[in-house]
């Protein structure tokens, strides 16, 4: 696939905190990455690592408790954090679209699928209702929904989970966005349906030439879809590189441990590595490298490390300055 070196989206040192009654949650704490035209960037991490908050920050869809402390989100050079809500609305759904994890709850139960798809078309493309309906039916056909003329007038509860996610995709693609953010689009689906949806998304991405941010906790989905990967842990990107670099030559102990702790279909008599301890409490992230209490290579300095990325190669970065220790261990 052709991937340009021209970034369409640049996230720089983004910090999004939640001010709750129990304290401050530093959900996203200095995240940076680029998204190039036409590529797929995978964001992977366990639950609570800040993946969804990152994507909602880009869309500026956070609730009132959240505060964007600092950072820039440059979309084609324009900082999305500086423009007015009015301007942002013109970008949402039109230039940057998003699909969510739970197709069961992400569609409004009291309006038809068609109505919900047409809404965005009418809004952004300024076409008449009859025209929008035609476009909606075409989209439904394109995302593989059988009998689109009939389905367009059905309500979400009349569709299966897989069909609803297809409808969500149709809705997101209705204005041919340049960026699609997919937040765990297949997590709620069965594997055979997941395979259908991933295939569909790949096809559509190729056809529309859009850039895709694929957010998931599933390393398999990342290997399957992503060109480049950002691995998140406790609100920070700990490793960032091409999919080959991340999977074959991980340079952060967390990535390494994660890869060796997933049961794999393609490996015989695998010994599963366990990452000790628990996922850190977001109200009380560890100091320094936030992975240090669980890291088998941790040393005293790790408790006071500055959060920054070290360059392994021009395309590969890690937050661990001691990544050399991984030379000798190898994955698997």
């Amino acid at each position: 696939m052709y991937v340009s070196r021209e970034p369409i989206l640049q996230v720089k040192n983004l910090k999004t905190y939640f001010y709750t009654e129990d304290g401050v949650i530093k959900a996203v704490d200095g995240v940076s990455f680029e998204l190039y035209k036409g590529e797929t960037l995978g964001i992977v991490g366990e639950s609570g690592s800040g993946k969804s908050v990152t994507s909602l920050t880009i869309m500026r869809l956070l609730d009132e408790k959240a505060k964007i402390e600092s950072g820039e989100i440059l979309f084609k050079g324009k900082d999305l954090l500086k423009i007015s809500e009015e301007e942002m609305r013109k970008i949402r759904g039109n230039d940057i679209a998003m699909i969510f994890q739970e197709p069961m709850v992400a569609l409004n139960p009291v309006y038809t699928i068609g109505d919900q798809i047409m809404e965005a078309i009418i809004l952004h493309q300024k076409v008449k209702e009859s025209e929008a309906r035609k476009i909606a039916i075409d989209l439904l056909r394109k995302v593989g929904i059988p009998e689109p003329e009939k389905r367009v007038d059905q309500y979400p509860h009349q569709l299966s989970g897989g069909m609803r996610q297809r409808a969500m995709i149709a809705m997101a693609l209705s204005c041919r966005p340049q960026i699609l953010i997919a937040d765990e689009p297949t997590t709620a689906l069965d594997v055979t349906i997941q395979a259908q949806i991933l295939e569909l998304m790949k096809e559509l991405q190729r056809e529309y030439g859009m850039a895709l941010i694929m957010i998931t906790h599933d390393m398999g989905v990342i290997a399957e879809t992503a060109d480049r990967v950002a691995v998140m842990y406790a609100g920070r990107v700990v490793e960032y590189g091409t999919v080959d670099e991340i999977f074959k030559n991980p340079k952060h102990p967390y990535t390494y441990a994660l890869l060796s702790s997933i049961p794999r279909l393609d490996v015989e008599d695998q010994e599963l590595k366990s990452i000790p301890g628990t996922v850190p409490d977001p109200l009380n992230f560890p100091s320094g490298c936030r992975f240090h209490p669980r890291c088998e290579f941790a040393r005293e300095e790790c408790k006071n490390l500055d959060p920054k990325l070290f360059e392994v190669s021009p395309s590969h970065y890690t937050a661990c300055p001691f990544y050399g220790v991984l030379e000798n261990v190898g994955v698997k």
Binding site: A195, E199, G220, A223, E224, F247, I262, R264, D266
Partner: peptide
């Protein structure tokens, strides 16, 4: 066989392999 083929494998080298996509829902 379809179930096995549908599972994404955490190895980017294996993504080129075409999987079996089952039609429709259960």
């Amino acid at each position: 066989v379809s179930l096995m083929s549908a599972i994404p494998i955490p190895d980017p080298d294996k993504k080129k392999k075409k999987r079996i996509i089952l039609k429709g829902d259960v």
